[in-house]
Design a binder for these strands. Sequence first.
DNA 1: AATTGTTGCACC
DNA 2: AAACGGTGCAACAATT
Length: 599
Amino acid sequence: MRLITHPIKRQIVRIHVAETPWDLAQFVDWVEANSTALGFDTETTGLDWWNADRGFRCRLAQFGTATESWVLPVEAGEDYAEAARWALRQAGRLIIHNANFDLHVVEATLGIPLEELAPKAICTKITAHLVDPRAVKEQGPGLKLEELTKHYLDRDLAEQVKGSMTRIAKAYKVKKEDIWPIVSLSDETFLLYAGMDPCLAYRLFHLLYPMIPLRSRRKGLFGWEHRLAYVCALIERTGYLLDAEYAEARAAELLAEQAKWEAVAAEFGVANVNSSAQLIEAFTGFGVRLTKKTAKGNLAMDAEVLDAIDHPLAEAVKKATKAGKWRSTWFERALSGRDSKGRVHATLNSLQARTARMSITGSVPAQTFPAGTGYVRHMFLAEEGHVTCCIDFANMELRFLAAESGDPVMRDAFANGKDLHQITADAAGVPRKVGKMGNFLIVFGGGWKALVTQAKVLEDVARRTIDAFGSTYTYVGKLADRLMAEARRTGFIYTSTGRRLPVDRGRLYAAQNYFIQSGSRDITARAVLRLHEAGYTKWMRLIIHDEIVFSFPKDRAEELMREAAKLMQFTVKGVEIPADGEIGDRSWGSVLDLEDSKH
DNA sequence: AATTGTTGCACC
DNA sequence: AAACGGTGCAACAATT
């Protein structure tokens, strides 16, 4: 056994590294003495846990308390893997940073199912988010283990740990992302880094849990965020069946399109259509006067600028960059993320944004798939004998606003099927489209200036629309005032689920948006939990803000859709937030085609 | 040569 | 008086 010692906050941590199977007897004694709760972490060859049948490996499994940890080289032999399995089952609680990842790793490489460990897992990322959801760039503590260590535990240690893998990668002369499969299991720095992590997670949990606001705990947020994360892990594990033939055909088609327009750009002397610098030079040379600036004060070269330029180069650039982006971001990304069974596994970050909104990352960045067309979504297939079904909430954010503000005009509009956008438009004497934009702008916390740029209307029209909103839905303003007053006084607002959200004092107007966005996310979250309890998880494929995508057996699809929509439907303070479903053929894209053909 | 910052664009 | 909220990813440019 090898012993490495290192302080956290001047308190020595003893890291035990098992080197022979004989060391495991001592590990067993230690686990038995500390089995109530153990910090846990793994070091792996990468992030692609779904590739355990073709190269993905778990290299180390680490267990820890506040002052001691054990590092088991599970890659080096079945004895270590068996000991790790035993300890995982022995522990009353497992404290893990970003638990879903390690639970996937354990299932895929050590064979303990999610179903067995998830109920006793505690995620420090969730815990930290309930205390303070802000990222570092928002002047918050952040949510990564290193960031949390720096903010809450030991600044110097965090800096050291942060740099350690970069230094090892340098020594091996490889990129940082390529170091994980090759770093030696006897590398002292790597073992220190690995052995420290479960101790950090253990300490963070004990420090942070009491800091979760009482109101959050009373509403059971800690528990249901963990159950939601578990459902997301199950959905991630199932993955989504990819139509590789379709994806490859589209990728090829887009590559040809891209090449065609790049050739046109080349004729005008632009070698790289993605280079703003080259384009600025070329257009300036043609005598085009560029004025729009970027955030940093440089000349902008975006779609708006290009749209205003009447020159064949502008057209070619737009077409070439779009084809290139769609090819690489959607089709090639999905194709390269396939597992051995042709499925792709998105990462569903169940508690991500400052407002708690979920994010979807990895090979299926589904939240940003082009809307209004099935072109990209066609590559995702329901199972054999199944059809795709999409159920989404109707006007969730505005209905939520109507409910929480209690505004009688808004409530009446929704209760009696009136056209809310038309009501706003009529009150301002503007077209319905402008009224609609105004309604959504209020949700975002925007003002008349934003309406000018977005709706391309004159200043007085924009002012009139915003004013009309205020005088028509008077209770909305009252809610905003209450939230801003709370934020000004305390720096926070509380949502109706007991979530505490920090509001920057210089951007108090954002309080209303946080309240609506977060409350809406929590409705979707609870809908997912209801669906899970009713046995729908095996059919769920993705959760996208206010929409859930399912793969239903074809012969029961109608019945399951009706039942699922009923489960999702929510009533907030007497206001219904209905959920409506659509059934397509096998591909997700077919659901959109169906909608198109109806209109 | 690898990492970090900037820009642009896809969405709710 | 006015205040556009929240994401992820690719490519290029600048920095280390």
